[in-house]
Amino acid sequence: MTGTDCSMAELHAVLLARDLLDGEKAIVGTNSDVQVAACNLARASHAPTLWWVSGPGGMVNCNEPVIRSTARTENIAWSEAMMDLPQMVDFIDWKIHFFDFAILGAIQIDRYGNINTVCVGPHDKPRLRGPGTVGISALTALARRFYVVMARHDRGSFPERVDFLNGPGFLDGGTSRTDRGLPEGGPKFVLSPLGVFDFEPISKRMRVKSLNPGVTLEQVQKQTGFELPVEGTPPITAMPTVDELKTLRASVDTSGVLRERRRA
């Protein structure tokens, strides 16, 4: 709890929106409130021609100022195109760098930004069976970059190595991603309840970019399953400005879907 009156979901939407550029193309999955908010907030502020498509539904640039599941039929009336999935899979599952970015969630993320949404423990006898892969393998492999939003931050969700790799990040670090034939790309930022993380340019190891207000370096290191390199004293995460929150609440998320979430 800090003095900044916004929810964690609002914070994440604002942090992501700041990094999205005008003219970029993106895909948003089914239950992706933060992703929809980030894209539409960017469009409402500095990136009016950012182009985003609903992965399951095919609706393009839905601009209803209410956040819904992207699969919902209601979104059609607020969109400027409606594509069919069998056409979309050409550029979702095959084409290199069609999408500038994707924003994904995960059960686990490891030191090189590989992600897991399949299982914890061995695949044939998992301790926890997750939902599966759907577009995650293709988007992490083929988009120019991706972001990962983690609902939790502990040693289980940030292990040294994911139990099942279904979204390639930097694989084994260094140049291993491109050595194994994947296009340039990989994770840019990881957002967790504790802070923002990025990757060292050469080793591709995850490192601390900023800490959320009230979070200490010791706490983050203790709750992470691998050593996080730090350069100097990490800054405090730049919280949403009054203007950013105003735009988010008045033009993007008018029914307060994100506001209802846990406080930042």
């Binding site: 992490t140 194994r180 994947l182």
Partner: peptide, 27 residues
């Protein structure tokens, strides 16, 4: 994953024995 079901269904729809998908370096 998405590519495998799309590639496999598309192959079946076209009476092809298999489809080709990019190797995404997953498990």
């Amino acid at each position: 994953d998405g590519p495998a079901i799309a590639g496999g269904l598309r192959a079946a729809a076209c009476d092809l024995p298999y489809g080709l998908i990019p190797d995404m370096c997953t498990d």
